[in-house]
């Protein structure tokens, strides 16, 4: 079969499988990115809090998960949750290795790693905020939540967008590592195709092209969002 037939959509072609797998890549990356945003919010709040314990905990979190290879973290979550599930299943009489659900483990691992990066993004964005804005909000009697919603969030979101773009690109590329725990996303699908057709170059190149398509399209989206968030802001440069 020629390359175009292999990657085609006719019966026996792998085109549809590869596209479905690209969808899975997007899904697991999005799940990881969004749970990372939640963790990032919590982490940034802890880093900016008055309590020393919270600051130390958040520091330990970002240092550990930004300093250790992602692959190692994915192994930790996969085997960690597997042995947890295994011991629960063992209590009910099951024996041997019980695999953890790959999508869940994968997105949790991606979420924990990206949360560490997003903590720094949100912290930077909050620090970039003009101090007078928060003081003014407090002076006219806004409570902390109202001030957060009306004053801090809309402005910090603008400062955070470029950083979030970076983290999203990172998560998209890290999601390829989820293939090691067996989730059939783009990379895993390419491995399966390469194995059964003995055309590894064709499949990995196609996977690379699809990744490139996803990353460049999403950076386009982020640039539009940045432009939109910056409307009404005068630029000196």
């Amino acid at each position: 079969m020629s390359t175009s037939e292999i990657m085609g959509f006719n019966p026996g072609g792998w085109g549809a499988d590869m596209l479905a797998a690209a969808g899975m890549t997007l899904a697991v990356a999005a799940a990881g990115f969004l749970s990372g945003i939640v963790l990032g919010f919590a982490g940034a709040a802890a880093k900016l809090s008055r309590f020393r314990v919270l600051r130390l905990l958040a520091d330990a979190y970002t240092t550990l998960f930004r300093g250790v290879p992602d692959l190692l973290i994915i192994y930790l979550f996969y085997f960690g949750s597997s042995s947890l599930i295994g011991s629960v299943a063992g209590a009910f009489g099951a024996r041997g290795f019980v695999g953890a659900p790959a999508f869940l483990t994968g997105s949790v691992a991606l979420g924990v790693v990206s949360g560490a990066y997003e903590t720094e993004v949100f912290r930077g964005a909050c620090l970039a905020l003009h101090k007078g804005e928060v003081e003014a909000a407090r002076a006219i009697g806004m409570g902390p939540f109202l001030a957060f919603r009306r004053i801090i969030l809309p402005q910090a979101a603008r400062f955070a967008l470029p950083g979030l773009d970076n983290v999203w690109q990172l998560v998209l590329k890290q999601s390829a590592l989820i293939s090691v725990i067996g989730l059939v996303e783009l990379m895993r699908q390419a491995q399966v195709g390469a194995g059964s057709t003995r055309q590894p170059f064709t499949f990995y190149l196609a996977a690379g092209a699809l990744y490139l398509l996803i990353t460049s399209l999403s950076s386009l989206v982020f640039h539009r969002a940045e432009r939109r968030a910056a409307r009404g802001i005068r630029r000196a440069l």
């Binding site: 998209l172 590329k173 999601s175 390829a176 590592l177 293939s179 990379m187 491995q191 690379g208 990353t215």
Partner: peptide, 8 residues
């Protein structure tokens, strides 16, 4: 593109 793809 992911480094893993490049290695493979």
């Amino acid at each position: 593109t992911p480094l893993l793809v490049q290695i493979f």
